[in-house]
Amino acid sequence: MRPLDWIVLVASLVSIIAYGLYRSRGSNTVDRYLLAGKSMPWYAMALSIMATQASAITFISTTGQSYVDGMRFVQFYFGLPLAMIVIAAVVVPVFHHARVYTAYEYLEKRFDSKTRALGSLIFLAQRGLSAGLTIYAPALVLSVILGWPERLTTVCVGATVVTYTMLGGIKAVTWSDVQQMAVIFAGLVISLVTVIVLLPQSVSFGDAVYLAGAAGRLNAVTTTFDWNDRFNLWSGLFGGTFLFLSYFGCDQSQVQRYLTGKSIAQSRLSLLFNAVAKIPMQFFILFIGAMVFVFYLFVQPPVLFQRAELARIGARGEFAPIAGQYQQAYEDRRRAALALVEAHHSGDPAAEERQKGAYRAAQKEIDRTRSAAAQLVEKSGGEAGFTDTNYIFLSFVTRYLPAGIVGLVIAVILAATMSASSGEINSLATVSVIDLYQRYLKRDASDRHYLMASRCATLFWGAYAVLFAGYARRLGSLIVAVNKVGSLFYGSLLGCFVLAFAFPRVKGTAAFAGMIAGEAAILWTAEYTNISWLWYNGIGCAVVLATALAISVARDGAASARPASPRSGPPQPA
């Protein structure tokens, strides 16, 4: 980081937070503090929804994933537009008419208090676990790449987030998100342009795309179906739809974004903007990773991008032959890439196929030697399942990008961390106060009292996230498990909301039992099968529906399991 980088970084972050706090003046009632007085325009909600979903790891990891595995991760988002249509058509009007602060408050209006309490607790458990990781994951990467002390980074980021979230409530969060997305878009565009400019003179943009494709890095659509494969067209369309229905329809960190809308139409527009913009945005991020891959065809990359681990295994005797093989494979690949471009321009299909074979063989050898180095990391006491994916993009940025742009990219990473974290902390505080404190501990206090309780809850969850992040390193490989935990809880929540919207005669006890059964089914699937986690939400939802409808029929007769007619729409609570 050079002086110009620090100037860009600090100026970006200070202006974001100052603008957020300026726009949040007057958040002095619970309604304004938690729902912005339902005054938000669609574009602010749309960018806030996008910013809350895009954490730092989205940018760090997605570019790295494209570098090592190509662009097929984009298929994960194919279900998002379908989910957004369902939520815009069904969920938004129900929540708006019900005048709720949280999604789980609606469950009591529709079912009963125990179903609301279970929904709230599932959300607090799941989102509470990820709140610390949202701050910890980028701090870990920045500590390796830039040498920043991990704990200092988590405390600085956490304190900043808590300050503006606690002072300004959801208005500060939303308007900061708008600014953060502006910085993120600018950073991404400048990164891509810079990568392309840094390519050798003899390699045009068309050649770069051709080379990335020949190495399998532009595999945006895979049509083969496989239950165990996370990313193909079918898992994206079907599994992804269920996942995004759960995330945008049942997770308070997203629901609260569109509950702040001026009207149903404004909230719908904010969701449909994401339905249209999210896939191209992810494609763009993945494409940056593919271009970084092409850049490293002509500039030798390290065997592993995680410098600390590379230095550690570098001293071991077993590493020398791996490094030698890697060096040879890199030279072979560079020569093959240049020959392939030449053959491609010559228009000789036979020569092109021959060079393509040599190019792919060299790439395979590079993948093999990198894999051997990663295994050596594990074998010599490193973390189990070691991968350097999260370090690829930032290694490239800090080593090759010019002064000022490095600062901008680091600002993108920190802005994404803060926008995701502020949304989580804000929603955790809202559910804690509205669904638990106000409902069970202090029912008839003044608005001023609940406003103060909301600020205290924000401070509590912010401090919790920072403390969790501080101890996350000691959790070791549990981090991986905790990340997976997110997908373990959504399915049963989704099933409960589908019951609420689509089966107007099903009652609370059946829904409650269905949620318990759905959760058990997801945990069983995760423990005893190899089915990819992308399918858990659909499985959990199906078990909730089957169980609740069976109980409902047994208790109240077959008519109780009749779905709502498409004309009447979901039931509106009184």
Partner: peptide, 27 residues
């Protein structure tokens, strides 16, 4: 809104078809 939802579905179909052709063109 029905027309808006239909437009989003058509958009998704076009995007997937575009990505599919992109993948085939550059593999």
């Amino acid at each position: 809104w029905r027309k808006v939802y239909q437009a989003v579905i058509v958009y998704l179909a076009v995007v997937i078809a575009g990505f599919y052709l992109f993948t085939r063109a550059y593999r």
